[in-house]
Simulated assay, not measured.
Amino acid sequence: MARVVWHVPLTVSGNGGTTALRLFRLRDGRRCAVGFSSPEALAALLGPGQAHTELAETALREMIAPLGVDTLVVDPRLVAPSVSTPAAPSTPPSPAAATAQLQHR
């Protein structure tokens, strides 16, 4: 039987001293791990700067089990509701109104 290896995204601390598996959430809120079949598939979804490592599926499952995570999603695609843009106002706001808006955010 061939060994299955996934490209798994990592989270790296700001100083680079800590590396951890990057976990995600399913639509129902449960946490899951993700694996990609190629570095190109990982970069296409998460960006070329995403840190990652190669892990055998069994190793990945053994790492996430103690965290209570039992779901592995392979080659996920971005699924998000479509973004609706608000209608543009008929007259542009004054610079003072725009500044006030920014201060209240």
Score class of each variant (00 low, 15 high):
residue 2 A to H: 14
residue 3 R to P: 04
residue 3 R to H: 13
residue 3 R to W: 00
residue 4 V to K: 13
residue 5 V to M: 13
residue 5 V to G: 04
residue 5 V to D: 10
residue 6 W to C: 06
residue 6 W to V: 06
residue 7 H to M: 11
residue 8 V to S: 04
residue 9 P to S: 10
residue 10 L to S: 03
residue 10 L to R: 04
residue 12 V to N: 06
residue 12 V to G: 07
residue 13 S to C: 11
residue 14 G to M: 14
residue 15 N to P: 08
residue 16 G to V: 01
residue 16 G to T: 03
residue 16 G to D: 00
residue 16 G to C: 04
residue 17 G to V: 00
residue 18 T to Q: 15
residue 18 T to G: 07
residue 19 T to K: 10
residue 20 A to Y: 00
residue 21 L to S: 08
residue 22 R to C: 06
residue 22 R to E: 02
residue 23 L to Q: 01
residue 23 L to W: 05
residue 23 L to N: 03
residue 23 L to G: 07
residue 23 L to T: 08
residue 25 R to V: 10
residue 25 R to F: 12
residue 26 L to F: 05
residue 26 L to V: 03
residue 27 R to H: 05
residue 27 R to K: 10
residue 28 D to S: 08
residue 28 D to V: 05
residue 29 G to W: 05
residue 30 R to T: 14
residue 31 R to L: 13
residue 32 C to N: 04
residue 32 C to Q: 01
residue 34 V to D: 08
residue 34 V to Q: 14
residue 35 G to C: 01
residue 36 F to E: 03
residue 36 F to Q: 00
residue 36 F to G: 02
residue 36 F to T: 04
residue 36 F to Y: 11
residue 38 S to L: 05
residue 38 S to T: 11
residue 39 P to E: 09
residue 40 E to N: 08
residue 40 E to L: 09
residue 40 E to K: 10
residue 42 L to Y: 02
residue 42 L to W: 06
residue 43 A to S: 15
residue 45 L to H: 04
residue 46 L to C: 04
residue 47 G to S: 09
residue 48 P to M: 09
residue 49 G to R: 15
residue 50 Q to R: 04
residue 50 Q to V: 02
residue 50 Q to P: 05
residue 51 A to I: 03
residue 52 H to Q: 09
residue 52 H to K: 00
residue 53 T to E: 13
residue 54 E to H: 11
residue 55 L to N: 05
residue 57 E to A: 11
residue 57 E to F: 04
residue 60 L to Y: 06
residue 60 L to K: 05
residue 61 R to Y: 07
residue 62 E to V: 13
residue 63 M to D: 03
residue 63 M to C: 06
residue 64 I to L: 00
residue 65 A to S: 10
residue 65 A to W: 01
residue 66 P to S: 08
residue 67 L to A: 01
residue 67 L to W: 09
residue 67 L to V: 00
residue 68 G to V: 01
residue 69 V to N: 07
residue 69 V to Y: 05
residue 72 L to I: 01
residue 74 V to L: 07
residue 75 D to R: 09
residue 76 P to A: 11
residue 76 P to I: 06
residue 77 R to S: 12
residue 79 V to T: 12
residue 80 A to C: 12
residue 80 A to S: 12
residue 80 A to K: 14
residue 80 A to W: 13
residue 84 S to I: 11
residue 85 T to L: 15
residue 86 P to F: 06
residue 87 A to G: 10
residue 89 P to G: 03
residue 89 P to I: 02
residue 89 P to Y: 02
residue 92 P to Y: 03
residue 94 S to C: 07
residue 94 S to Q: 08
residue 95 P to G: 05
residue 95 P to D: 00
residue 95 P to R: 02
residue 96 A to P: 03
residue 96 A to K: 13
residue 97 A to E: 15
residue 98 A to R: 12
residue 98 A to I: 13
residue 99 T to I: 12
residue 101 Q to C: 10
residue 101 Q to I: 06
residue 102 L to C: 00
residue 103 Q to H: 04
residue 104 H to N: 14
residue 104 H to V: 13
residue 105 R to N: 02
